[in-house]
Amino acid sequence: MTRWLTGARDDPAERAHRVVPAALRAAYAWTVRHEHHDAMREVARMTGVVMEAHGPGHGPTTPIGLISCLRRRLGLLPALAGGRNTEISQVVLLGSDDRLTPDAYDLACEYALPVHGAPDAPQWMPTWTWMHADQIRRHTFKTLMDGRDQERYVASRRFLVENPAGLRSELGELIAESGVRPPPRGYTAIPSGHVHRSPDGRSWWWPCAVCHWPMAVAGTTVRCRHRPHSAVYRLTEATTAASRPSLSRIDEGRPRLARPVARPTADSLCVDSGIWRSVVVPGVSELRVKRSLEELGATVELWPRLDRYDLHVRAADEEFTVDLKEYHSAHRLIADLRSRPPEVRILLPKTHEHQLETLRTALPSLRVTTETKFCTEVRRALRTV
């Protein structure tokens, strides 16, 4: 597990650990400065953190100066210059339109941490900007684990993965019927950056065809924030007052996906963006792998022993235990595996199989496989029956 930041140190790595999460918080606050009156105060706070990490005479010294730096590669900040982590040094947090870049969501958020010396993050800041994934999951699962009932835990966690967004009334009915326990404040209004407002005043959102969480809307481009869910769409306004805006796919990606249908924003809710990124996104892959293995004839148990690991697979006389890891940053994954060695084999989903050799090189003793290799292994075990 990534360590909490505990104060100023002269170690360059520790300075970098303070700068990255502070830069991410400042970048997010800048994007919502017209919506939240104290957003600029948050930018100023994070400027102070960055100044302290750099020391006198180094790095940005004003909030506007920090924002200017965030429109360039993070590696140009003195605290990150010359570092070995080339992934994070190449990240640009703010695009030319002053929106967060895809890398901010996909990569920088994996470095989010509490910032020592700064006040707790304001309520309007999403959890992924100031808590790392393990913290978000623990916070979310604390309610799900109430009573330490394995069956109830799996049902509640699966409910979040399969129902990350929807109408308030529909979600309420599903919760009542299933008896699951969603986490406190688990569902919130659809984020403004994921809403399209038509000229007639109506507003809409579209669920990702893979994870079903609201896709981001940037002008006429609509896509999921999680880039492995890679479909990209162009938005076309409704032609009549009774119709809805529609999407047409403009990328050449695979696989073929059902075209999302616009849903009214009024009375719609979705899970917090941190829960989506840390629970829903990997959960979608875990459920997909489970279905694939069951189609082969295996028996699969989800999140055994209250999430001691992800999948327990029985194939004929053989049993397999794996923990799925879906990190955008191989560097961040390696650091986390070093600080908390896994008890079971690591499984890389199809979208992240390219990380296999990097992990094996950095961690030669690590037991790691890919989804493709693992499915072949289970299929071979079933054939021996």
Results as ranks from 00 to 15, higher is better:
260 P>L: 07
326 E>W: 05
24 L>H: 02
353 E>M: 13
44 A>M: 04
183 P>T: 10
170 E>W: 12
356 L>V: 09
277 R>V: 02
40 M>I: 12
298 A>R: 04
354 H>W: 15
253 G>W: 07
246 S>F: 12
112 A>C: 05
287 L>D: 00
75 G>Y: 11
177 E>W: 11
191 P>E: 06
92 V>Y: 07
293 L>Q: 01
345 R>L: 06
85 N>Q: 11
251 D>C: 09
35 E>H: 15
298 A>W: 01
83 G>R: 02
39 A>Q: 05
167 L>K: 12
282 P>G: 04
303 W>E: 02
276 W>M: 05
26 A>S: 13
324 L>W: 00
49 V>F: 12
129 T>H: 12
25 R>M: 14
56 P>L: 10
24 L>G: 05
291 R>S: 11
133 A>W: 14
311 L>G: 04
279 V>G: 06
102 P>W: 09
363 L>K: 13
234 R>H: 13
99 R>A: 15
112 A>P: 02
272 D>M: 01
200 D>G: 05
167 L>E: 08
44 A>N: 07
285 S>Q: 11
163 N>W: 11
319 E>I: 10
376 T>S: 13
128 W>P: 04
136 I>C: 14
345 R>K: 08
115 V>C: 13
174 L>I: 12
198 S>V: 05
232 V>I: 14
201 G>M: 08
223 R>K: 08
32 V>C: 09
373 K>V: 07
154 V>D: 00
22 A>Y: 10
253 G>K: 06
276 W>A: 04
371 E>V: 00
114 P>F: 14
296 L>P: 05
97 D>G: 08
29 A>D: 03
299 T>L: 01
327 Y>Q: 00
343 E>Y: 09
320 F>V: 00
209 A>P: 02
232 V>S: 12
108 A>S: 10
168 R>L: 07
182 P>W: 11
220 T>F: 14
176 A>S: 14
42 E>W: 14
65 G>H: 11
104 A>G: 14
257 L>S: 05
89 S>V: 02
240 T>I: 13
238 A>Q: 15
246 S>T: 15
41 R>W: 15
309 Y>S: 03
180 V>C: 13
20 V>G: 07
185 R>N: 11
151 E>T: 07
82 G>M: 02
49 V>D: 03
143 T>W: 09
126 P>Y: 15
339 S>D: 13
243 S>Y: 10
73 R>P: 07
65 G>P: 02
286 E>P: 00
269 L>D: 06
200 D>M: 08
302 L>W: 07
35 E>M: 12
167 L>V: 05
335 A>H: 03
81 A>V: 09
328 H>S: 05
200 D>P: 10
344 V>I: 04
153 Y>I: 06
92 V>F: 09
91 V>W: 02
47 T>E: 07
311 L>K: 03
182 P>M: 10
251 D>E: 08
212 H>M: 04
160 L>Y: 12
385 V>Q: 02
244 R>K: 13
321 T>H: 11
308 R>T: 14
260 P>K: 03
217 V>H: 06
261 V>L: 15
127 T>H: 12
202 R>M: 11
45 R>S: 09
302 L>E: 00
351 T>S: 09
